[in-house]
Amino acid sequence: MQILIVEDEASLMESMVSYLELEGFRCEKAGDYHTAVCVLDKHDYMCMLIDLNLPGGDGLELVKLARENQTESGIIIISARDTIEQRVEGLEAGADDYLVKPFHLSELVARVHSVARRTRMKGGEVLSFGVISVLPEEHTCFVNQNQVELTRKELDMLMFLMANRNRVVTKESIADYLWGEYGGGYGSYDFVYTHLKNLRRKLQDAGCPDYVQNIYGIGYKFSLDKSP
């Protein structure tokens, strides 16, 4: 589970490494273009996170190079460049996903999982957590082998929580991940609460214990162990 992180901002790199290592990933760090090129072949990476503004070279070139070298790896661009043209350019260079800075670390983790699923497992994977199992490709969810009918948003939310298991995820990060630009600007994140409430109810109705903890109003934690 190696991840290559190419990012020139040491502080941000630090945060990403800490968070990803909490999730059980091992990280290879590169602070500039040339270091990145050197370590490109060092491991068989599950995913590569590449910043576009790099000292010593163009991030897009690095993306192209990485795509040639490691065809099986997922590539996520992390950049402050946020226009549609720039995103298209990035995806055309060979990236699988494009995350605009500043992002939530929980969102990064969810995307890493999702990209890895798409490139590595070719989708045929079962995600499980306690009594819950999710087939991402078929958009179905089971609790103790019984199928639970979830809406698309509820399933996405469940998968987001599962990717960030045992972590506190903020309401903002859920809103941003699930609704993108439509997530903010309403003055409250009540809709996140409402959707989560529905999800919890459906899971509990199917016989699943409540894995969600409310953490001081800041967000939620999805874990098997209910004691905070």
Partner: peptide, 21 residues
């Protein structure tokens, strides 16, 4: 400017998220 502002914002954001954990 976007880059220069977004990067420190990204740092604050990620550090906060780490602290929350």
């Amino acid at each position: 400017t976007t880059h220069e502002l977004q990067t420190p914002l990204a740092v604050i954001k990620s550090k906060t998220e780490l602290l929350i954990q």
